[in-house]
């Protein structure tokens, strides 16, 4: 179908759809699904993280130290480093790309308004946390986060996620992942303080910084320096790890594609 015809059909459909659904969508956008008021935390601060990918060697020290600090169950991660092998098709040259992932503590977090009991909320310092005593484990927030930053903790049966190690920040310590990063790739700080390292780096690198999936309008507050824009949205990559299943479809282990 040529583009003109396609766009005409699209317009027609949108027109008819629009007429029927205008009242519905306006209800959905007004009030329901709006961000609730922030509570707790220091209103004079706004924490954020800058990850200097030029310094990341993919050693997973952050993954391990976070896992120990926050006692996440096996196989679930508050932070981890995805690793990609990138091949230039013309020259055949290979490169490895590291992408540390964690909660983006978004300015417009999609996980917060969906919570039916306000168990997950954003503090005034921007950190998104979960009150695990209140959480009913409906997992709506897990589905609402486009970054796979949330999971259901098998031990507590409630939603779990990165908190920027708020308990450590309050004690004047750095988050476990920042503390353990061998390359100093992770920089955390108060973005309201113009003298903090993160504020200075944001001012210095400005346009070069990228965030993940900006088109989702979540306004992430984890900034990547030295990012390849092909990895900003869902990476166009082939998954190398394959699960090996037995006759009953139960998982036996992993193998690499092509082996």
């Amino acid at each position: 179908m040529d583009l003109m015809r396609r766009s005409l059909l699209g317009q027609l459909a949108r027109l008819s759809a629009g007429v029927a659904l205008v009242p519905l969508s306006s209800i959905a956008t007004a009030g329901i699904n709006a961000q609730p008021a922030r509570r707790e935390g220091d209103p004079t601060k706004r924490y954020g993280m800058l990850i200097d990918l030029r310094q990341c060697i993919g050693c997973q020290a952050c993954t391990v130290s976070c896992h120990i600090e926050n006692a996440a169950p096996m196989g679930k991660f508050r932070t981890t480093v995805s690793q990609y092998e990138v091949e230039d098709q013309a020259s055949g040259a290979l490169a490895t790309f590291m992408l540390p992932r964690l909660c983006n503590h978004c300015e417009n977090p999609p996980c917060v308004p969906v919570c039916p009991v306000e168990a997950t909320f954003q503090r005034q310092d921007g950190i998104v946390v979960v009150d695990s005593d209140r959480c009913v484990g409906c997992a709506y927030c897990v589905n609402a986060c486009p970054y796979d930053a949330r999971f259901i903790n098998d031990k507590t049966q409630t939603a779990d996620k990165c908190t920027f190690c708020a308990h450590r920040l309050e004690a004047g310590l750095l988050p476990a992942c920042v503390e353990s990063c061998v390359g100093g790739a992770r920089i955390i700080g108060d973005m309201r303080d113009p003298n903090s390292q993160i504020s200075q780096m944001i001012a210095e690198y400005g346009e070069q910084l990228m965030v993940l999936q900006p088109e989702k309008n979540t306004v992430p507050q984890v900034f990547y320096l030295g990012m390849d824009e092909r990895f900003v949205t869902r990476p166009v990559a082939e998954a190398a790890l394959l699960e090996v299943l037995d006759d009953q479809g139960k998982e036996m282990g992993y193998e690499f594609r092509g082996h």
Binding site: E87, V236, A237, E238, A239
Partner: peptide
Amino acid sequence: MNSVAIELLAPRYPIAWY
């Protein structure tokens, strides 16, 4: 610049709604 990428390492994310 054409390139192909292979994801070597990423966690598995189970379903949240059963």
